[in-house]
Design a binder for these strands. Sequence first.
DNA 1: TGCCGCCTACTTACACTGTATGTTTGCGAA
DNA 2: TTCGCAAACATACAGTGTAAGTAGGCGGCA
Lengths: 179, 179
Amino acid sequence: MTDAPPKPRRRKGLTRARILAEAVTLADAEGIGAVSMRKLAARLGVEAMSLYNHVGGKDDLAAGMADLVVGSAGTPGDGPWRDEVHTAAHAIRTALARHPWAVPLLAAMPPGPRRLAHAEATRARLAEAGLDAATAASAQEAIEALAIGCAAMGDGGTELDGLEFGLGLILEGLERLRS
Amino acid sequence: MTDAPPKPRRRKGLTRARILAEAVTLADAEGIGAVSMRKLAARLGVEAMSLYNHVGGKDDLAAGMADLVVGSAGTPGDGPWRDEVHTAAHAIRTALARHPWAVPLLAAMPPGPRRLAHAEATRARLAEAGLDAATAASAQEAIEALAIGCAAMGDGGTELDGLEFGLGLILEGLERLRS
DNA sequence: TGCCGCCTACTTACACTGTATGTTTGCGAA
DNA sequence: TTCGCAAACATACAGTGTAAGTAGGCGGCA
């Protein structure tokens, strides 16, 4: 048994973005439990410890993955407030349906930059619609909670989707509140 | 170095309930990450593998813990429907606030018996209030999602709590819907 | 009373985890 | 051309879940 020759240490162009993207792909394919530093590194043609040059650790990795998923939902545009908020909530729900493993991560970690941006944009729309700042904040919180909660429950089993139903009532209530 | 004498194999009265209760205590004290089979077993004066006589594995343990927490919220009683549903939603939110580690578990696993019972009881109240079955199911889904989602977000940062606000709008909408 | 068999608890072992620490080397800046 | 830093590798360790096998206490039956 001769010693294995040491690997060449060529730069691999490893990047936080590349790592997160590959981690999401891996989680989608084999479940979040299959995402280990070694397996992820192997997929990137790299040793496990190399990841630590771009990622703080397993927790940071998980947070980055979750935020990436939320970020894929985009932020509400500048159309009519009710349509925008409605669409934005569904976009989050859809993104989480595509990556169900992200839901527990969202619940386990503080919000990342993209998620905060989404929340901020939604609050802005609500404020423009005529709600005072406190009400807009509470409303945004309720809507995001509803979207995430529905994702956590895997709703859609009922005739009228839990999100669609709850969101409808909330938006109607908000309509009545502004004035 | 003499061989360590083998431990006596006295019955310890180990029970699924005792295991789950101790696991919850441990998670509360040191975080869910500290709940390992060995550490949990040690607290019960037992070896790790003994737990497997009462628990299917780590996943089953986690599911049992989460369901225990939800169960601690009780089920809606038979007072006025609106008060009961309101109280029940807050009870879940409070139970999850007391055991925040349970939120990601709820999102990661199918609902346990106590959670299902809670949902069923809530649906029954809503049906009695005059909502047809499909509407009651959607409403229950929305309300539970809102409570869990608020727990996942650690709401309460806003002036009017996200749950209180959203729940108010939803209940008001339901009031208008029945007739 | 004696004995048998099941259930519970223990032991050992294995593959795998995250990551602390230390070493090498490619590459851009001076 | 040389120097220094960042990015990659290598090694190592404590801890994980759990499969498989073993031993002993206790309930039920003779």
